[in-house]
Design a protein around this nucleic acid. Sequence first.
DNA 1: AAGAATTTGTGAAATTTTTCACAAAGTCGG
DNA 2: CCGACTTTGTGAAAAATTTCACAAATTCTT
Lengths: 208, 208
Amino acid sequence: MVKKTKIPEITITRLSNYFRVLDEFKRREFYNIASYQLAEEMDINDSQVRKDLAYFGQFGKPGMGYEMTRLKEEIQKILGLTRKWRVALVGVGNLGSALLAYKGFQGQGFHIIAAFDSDPKKMGKKWAGTVVYDITELKSIIRKERIEIGIITIPAPAAQEVANLLTKAGIKAILNFAPVRIAVPKNVRLSNVDLSLRLENLSFFLSR
Amino acid sequence: MVKKTKIPEITITRLSNYFRVLDEFKRREFYNIASYQLAEEMDINDSQVRKDLAYFGQFGKPGMGYEMTRLKEEIQKILGLTRKWRVALVGVGNLGSALLAYKGFQGQGFHIIAAFDSDPKKMGKKWAGTVVYDITELKSIIRKERIEIGIITIPAPAAQEVANLLTKAGIKAILNFAPVRIAVPKNVRLSNVDLSLRLENLSFFLSR
DNA sequence: AAGAATTTGTGAAATTTTTCACAAAGTCGG
DNA sequence: CCGACTTTGTGAAAAATTTCACAAATTCTT
Ligand SMILES: NC(=O)c1ccc[n+]([C@@H]2O[C@H](COP(=O)([O-])OP(=O)(O)OC[C@H]3O[C@@H](n4cnc5c(N)ncnc54)[C@H](O)[C@@H]3O)[C@@H](O)[C@H]2O)c1
Ligand SMILES: NC(=O)c1ccc[n+]([C@@H]2O[C@H](COP(=O)([O-])OP(=O)(O)OC[C@H]3O[C@@H](n4cnc5c(N)ncnc54)[C@H](O)[C@@H]3O)[C@@H](O)[C@H]2O)c1
């Protein structure tokens, strides 16, 4: 059934969350998990869980639920986490440095292979093991290193320009932290992490 | 019509985005903006824009669109951005330090009043102008300073514990950066910034 | 081996969200 | 002040997503 019906985007987010729940349950040494258990943990309906998984195959056993090891593997396959992803980060400032120092992504297969900055003071140095290159070298290094994902952590006014550089270099997905909406070609996947937006959301609910 | 019908949560996110677009257009010195312009900019349908705004009142003029200054003010009111929000941050590590150094939130009315950490080396010092307190002082300082929003930037295993401290101290909303699902009382608003989840999302779309 | 108990996978129903489409309200040029 | 335009606000229709509900599959108990 894979790729046949249109899969709601939110289903993908939930798959990631099922994965998290499975990790937590695994430590408690269960072998199987039922849809109602996953659902309870995530405050959703149990048939939602079954529908989400059924988009990709039949992983469960009636009467038994889902075998946890198997389900984790299946979700990993679905999300494309069985391979390594080569990532570049542009903008080694406050936020960029924090991301470079973070070891958590590595464990999930996301490897920051190269960093770029336009500040001569930062170029050539290493940050948490990653070399910081001159932004002018972006295209050649991204191609040479076969990097597919780009992270943008530069000030908003320069974000579009850098996004253009990234897409011209052949990057296929961008995670943008600059608080600005950037345009990318249709074949490039863009995901914005807009923290102000999140705070504004909290503000709205506190205000009512 | 305010608060009468149930407002979709995604409408709130779009309101924040309309606000961004208005900022961009403002620099170009227009007085009015039509729903179709906002919609075009955001790649959505123009009646979506009108529906979203109509939840909160009638801000537009037929034939003319929306007066930009007015609309910005209305959205600010709706999102609760006409007042200052007092924020506390827990965990002055890589990510926490970056957030403390960031001046962008200030401009939107979010002021990080106090920071907390459990590491004696960090306590008592200032980070980007914000005092770092001992985590044991959390409750008294949050109450004294009338802080309403908490940001969690500590390792995942300690996140639930700190969330408990925050809610017991009377905080009303939490922005959580730890990659773990935490439980909070129903009257506390929780928003998770899970960067791995975002990367996994990109990975899914790159894999298909 | 049969019967009770579970729980999946999935059509169908219900609900939510988006889009359509148009009357009503306003602008503008003459 | 009229007539041609433009664009809002909103019911109604369409589309998308979630929930219901149950036959079928599997296990468990005796
Ligand atoms: N720091 C935070 O906690 C935080 C929070 C929310 C959003 N953001 C956003 O993330 C982005 C980065 O924030 P920051 O605080 O790390 O900023 P920063 O000023 O500390 O770092 C920006 C870095 O980008 C580099 N840079 C600037 N223009 C460049 C270009 N054209 N090419 C390559 N490198 C370039 C600078 O040299 C600098 O090293 C900003 O858009 C900011 O709004 C940051
Ligand atoms: N650094 C990143 O870019 C990044 C990216 C994604 C997610 N995260 C998540 O954000 C969180 C923070 O990451 P980090 O890289 O800044 O970690 P870090 O280790 O650099 O900082 C954590 C800080 O929290 C403090 N701390 C630990 N336990 C505490 C407690 N019980 N009370 C008060 N303070 C406590 C530590 O002393 C330290 O200063 C983690 O959950 C991490 O998974 C970080």
